[in-house]
């Protein structure tokens, strides 16, 4: 089973609105996670401009020796990314699924303010289930 180290959601202006880490590897404090989020936001923007391919939508996968970083940006500009062990499979599906959970349990919550940090218990619960058992592979979509 693929190990996921952490999951981030950043709003379209680059602010970290959700951070969750799983397992012991790559644990970070709040400041570091904020730094990673804003760094990634800028790198993503720069990559769009530097890309030799026209119509590039930014980095989707960053491979390093000790981790992989998969990123998914919705058409509205919200970015979802996971840091996971190298070679982990089905991460695109997981990110799509997280996006669906976000639309269901965050955006539909009338007391959630757009672009603000996510504090929704239902979202937490469903996300934990999706990540822990890697249910995304089962969903097969």
């Amino acid at each position: 089973m693929a190990a996921i180290y952490s999951l981030y959601i950043i709003n379209k202006s680059g602010g970290l609105i959700y951070y969750k880490d799983y397992g012991s590897a790559g644990r970070m404090d709040t400041n570091d996670s904020l730094r990673v989020a804003s760094l990634w936001h800028s790198m993503h923007a720069i990559s769009q401009q530097l890309s030799p391919v026209s119509g590039c939508l930014g980095i989707e996968l960053l491979q390093a020796d000790t981790f992989d970083l998969h990123c998914f940006q919705s058409l509205t500009g919200t970015k979802f990314f996971v840091v996971c062990e190298p070679g982990a499979q089905h991460m695109e599906n997981l990110l799509k699924f997280v996006y669906e959970l976000y639309t269901d349990y965050v955006l539909k919550n009338p007391f959630y303010e757009m672009e603000m940090p996510i504090r929704c218990e239902l979202f937490d619960i469903n996300l934990t289930q999706a990540v822990q058992k890697d249910r995304v592979a089962f969903l097969g979509r």
Binding site: S74, T76, T78, Y99, E100, L107
Partner: peptide, 16 residues
């Protein structure tokens, strides 16, 4: 609308 659009994009599988 500003919230609904995300659900629409996530679940309808339409592309850009």
């Amino acid at each position: 609308g500003i919230r609904l659009i995300d659900e629409f994009l996530a679940k309808s599988n339409v592309s850009r």
